[in-house]
Amino acid sequence: MSKPNLDTLTRALRAEVQGDDPVREVETFDRIVADLNRKKVSFLSMRRVPLVLLAAAFVFATALAGATGRLRSVFAAVERLMGAGTKAAPQEPLRPAPASSVLPPVDTPPQVAEAPSSLLLPTAIGSVAAAPSVRLSHSKSVLPTASAPTDVPTEASSVAVPAAPIDAVALDESLYREAHRLHFVDHNWSGALTAWDAYLAKVKGGKFALEARYNRALCLVRLGRTADAKRALAPFARGEYGAYRQSEAQGLLDRLEQAPPKGGVVP
């Protein structure tokens, strides 16, 4: 009864790890590339973070100011600044001119200070602020609460517009991430196939669409759907996407031609 000695066991371990798994090799490389891309994307996303925060802070501050009724004073300050900036030196002689062009003649000095506020605002800030500032010029005490709600949504909607593409990018990334997890972490090929399909349907021209298409083909190989897999790999092998995955796709197609992958069984 001779026990295997250390040399025998060492030889066994040496010989045991000789087999290779072509699909797995490709998948691992795919995972590497995907992670490198994600690093790049997250770096770019990080660069966008300050802008997004700035925009969010601006929206919040504007909404808060509108709700508390301080927006008007802000507008007034802006107007004063604009007025001071553009017409600093000849303040007094120039003011009556624009005022007289729109409003009835202004006589008293105190009203001269408010009159430009309604006139300069549209050019200084935009049409959004026109309504409240006109009310301001008429009466401060009558409509303080009425003007507040109109400010908030108008400001918010006008500033929040750039956030939409960021949401789309986030959706794009989250779909991709989910599919990637199912594929490369859970090894849930059927789930991953569905997820890749969902990603491709949602973001047709997504930045990872090509990669998603290739990963989808890998899922088909894994699931033993040889005919579908061949169809999915063929464009890559033909070079329709340039050199992207061309050699890997051709290699997989060759292997599929020779023999089906281990019964398409999920390892």
């Binding site: 066991l9 066994a12 371990l13």
Partner: peptide, 21 residues
């Protein structure tokens, strides 16, 4: 277990023994 040739241990088993050691 530490297999012996008599128990027709596979190479895989032998490798596992070494891995555990």
């Amino acid at each position: 277990s530490n297999p012996t040739p008599e128990t027709s241990a596979s190479r895989k088993q032998l490798a596992e023994v070494l891995t555990r050691a």
